[in-house]
Design a protein around this nucleic acid. Structure first.
Length: 207
DNA sequence: ACCCAGGTGGCCC
DNA sequence: GGGCCACATGGG
């Protein structure tokens, strides 16, 4: 599979949909504030196997109660946030996961800003050790909250790869490696590309 | 009353 | 390495 093919797919989706909009405006924003990076990390957990509408309801509950920061979540613990994030589903395990992430970041590094200096390979391994964070969530945090050039693989990406017969192996690590090998290591490209896969997949589903 | 949504972990073989 | 299941809510 030639490298050109991958860039071509990006350009095709980019032409069809333009710059990622709506929910992706924040995730694909170029220069995020510290607060916005924390929101993205929190949303990355809330969105697991859940409709975005439900994520927004849960996130708004956190914001209204001023519990939309890692330091607050760390301070107050999972029990105080689980009720607020109910709309996102799987709320007990997600509350625990949010607390574990906040605890990890604050105890080991102090802040998201500090963690950004770590190498992505080390960071990924540490994130994967947290209960509730698997490959897709870890990579979403690395790519969208920390601007690390890590390609995120999700259901929509797999479906796209199957439909277009881009590969015959659909395991996470194989596909991630395939995209990273055939694209420039550019977090901005990876952010928009993955967003467009989701936008494209959702549009197809509506029909 | 179904079916689905940016997954993950535990258990089994 | 993969197959199956629990985890939970809101919208079509």
């Amino acid at each position: 599979m030639a490298k050109k093919v991958f860039l071509k797919i990006y350009q095709e989706l980019r032409e069809r949909y333009g710059k990622p909009k709506d929910q992706w405006k924040l995730w694909c924003k170029r220069k995020k504030t510290e607060r916005e990076r924390e929101w993205v990390a929190i949303e990355a957990i809330l969105t697991q196997r859940t409709n975005w509408r439900n994520v927004e309801m849960a996130m708004n509950n956190l914001k209204k109660n001023k519990l939309d920061s890692l330091s607050k979540i760390y301070q107050l613990g999972s029990k105080r946030i689980s009720g607020l994030i109910k709309p996102a589903g799987f709320y007990q395990q997600k509350a625990e996961c949010l607390f574990l992430l906040a605890k990890f970041i604050i105890e080991e590094h102090g802040s998201l800003k500090a963690i950004k200096r770590e190498r992505k390979e080390i960071l990924r391994e540490k994130l994967l050790r947290l209960k509730g964070i698997g490959p897709e969530t870890a990579d979403s945090i690395l790519l969208y909250a920390l601007d690390k050039p890590v390609f995120v693989i999700d259901e929509y990406t797999k479906r796209f790869v199957k439909e277009r017969k881009i590969a015959d192996n659909f395991s996470y690590s194989y596909l991630q490696n395939l995209f990273e090998k055939n694209l420039k290591k550019d977090f901005k490209l990876y952010q928009d590309f993955h967003a467009l896969f989701v936008i494209d997949g959702k549009r197809k589903r509506q029909k």
